[in-house]
Simulated scan of single mutants.
Amino acid sequence: MGKKVTIRDIARESGVSTTTVSRLLNHVEGYCSKDTEQRVWAAIKRLNYHPSKIARSLVTQKTNLIGVIFPDIYNSFFQDLFRGVEEYASSLGYQLILCNTDGDSKKERDYLLNLAENLTDGIIISTSNGKDDNTTIVDLHKKGFPIVTVERYGKELKDVPRILFANREAEERVVDYLYRSGHRRIAYISGPSNAVNANRRQEGFRNGLSKNGLSVDDSLILTGDYKLESGQACMRRLLDKCGCSNGKKPDFTAVMAGNDLMAIGAVREIFEQGLKIPDDISVVGCDGTMLADLIRPRIGTIRLGGIEMGKKAAEYLISEIGSEDTDEKKIIFQPELHLDGRIKTIKE
């Protein structure tokens, strides 16, 4: 391996000072003639010089790096979210550092502090899928560090740019659709009880039942953790309650889950117990990821628009990095129901 070319080699080759080369590399104008500029760039090309991003960041005070903090990179929604952030940010010359917290608040705080300390130009952080601690986020924002949150809640975040989803409205609209399709007994598998978005989705489900004159049966509402295995375990408990293991048909005709992963877990258990979808049980998830389309028969889902949310989060953040004022501090994405042809119609 040959000797690494340095800025001193470029200066020596082109007959200028290292300061002149540095200013040209960092696009500082007005310090040399066009002839000198051409000589320097020719030397850079001839010696195949690649400038150090670390050294450049010391001059520009920018790293062109964005930190992204998620709780579960195995979750397809966060994969969509990341893709949206990457598509928008990369088009403007930014690169991403992805951090996975596994819902651990200490890991989340450590990532926030480390990324904010001269490593990135800004951070996008999503919900932790549990009890969110927004203290560090608010502290960083007050110090002027660019940060955008996705699906995090709390009055303390009122001045922080936020991307949110209409969780209550989404689940309420699904209940409306199921009711119009003849369903009167609907089960629900909720996300973690300490996650605000999970509670809002369950509230939407309960509101939908009441609005349509259906009683809320708490025995049909179970709590999972947004992971596939919990969806299957909850579905097993629901089916055991109505004696399906003894060959009986379930006394409910549809099940809604707080996300697509838990819905897929429910599907697995339904199949293992010899039941059919949607003939015996119609299944609806929430996220709108490819999972709902890959499984056969396809299940219903609510499209959150993860890619679009990611793009908007990146747009917000890069505006913050550039000290541009944004008209809105909060954007709420509306649900898109994918239910047609996936839900059984029950005729009275």
Results as ranks from 00 to 15, higher is better:
212 N>K: 02
45 K>C: 01
120 T>Q: 06
317 L>D: 09
329 K>E: 08
5 V>Y: 07
196 V>K: 14
300 G>P: 02
11 A>I: 10
111 Y>V: 00
213 G>V: 06
144 G>C: 12
9 D>Q: 08
230 S>A: 14
288 G>T: 09
345 T>S: 01
120 T>W: 07
147 I>V: 15
33 S>T: 15
7 I>G: 01
224 G>F: 04
343 I>H: 02
40 V>P: 01
265 G>T: 05
78 F>A: 05
20 T>M: 13
125 I>T: 13
292 A>R: 01
348 E>R: 11
12 R>V: 13
275 L>T: 04
6 T>S: 12
171 E>V: 08
38 Q>A: 15
67 G>L: 08
290 M>I: 13
312 K>Q: 15
116 A>Y: 05
114 N>K: 05
111 Y>P: 01
192 P>M: 09
190 S>I: 01
153 Y>W: 14
320 E>H: 04
197 N>K: 08
252 F>I: 03
68 V>Y: 05
266 A>K: 03
76 S>K: 06
329 K>S: 06
118 N>F: 04
127 T>H: 05
249 K>R: 14
328 E>Y: 09
122 G>N: 10
181 S>Y: 11
52 S>R: 07
59 V>I: 15
328 E>L: 05
253 T>C: 06
33 S>L: 06
178 L>R: 01
246 N>S: 12
160 V>T: 12
47 L>T: 04
268 R>K: 15
119 L>E: 10
192 P>Y: 11
92 L>G: 01
186 I>N: 04
11 A>S: 08
340 D>V: 03
234 C>S: 14
111 Y>S: 02
223 T>G: 00
289 T>P: 07
275 L>N: 09
302 I>L: 08
302 I>A: 05
335 P>A: 09
303 R>H: 12
165 F>N: 02
73 I>N: 02
333 F>Q: 09
237 R>K: 15
185 R>W: 04
249 K>L: 03
93 G>P: 06
332 I>E: 09
113 L>C: 00
24 L>E: 08
95 Q>V: 00
254 A>Y: 11
85 V>G: 03
184 R>E: 14
320 E>N: 07
141 H>T: 07
81 L>H: 10
170 A>H: 06
193 S>E: 09
160 V>S: 04
225 D>K: 04
141 H>E: 08
137 I>R: 06
267 V>Q: 08
135 T>W: 00
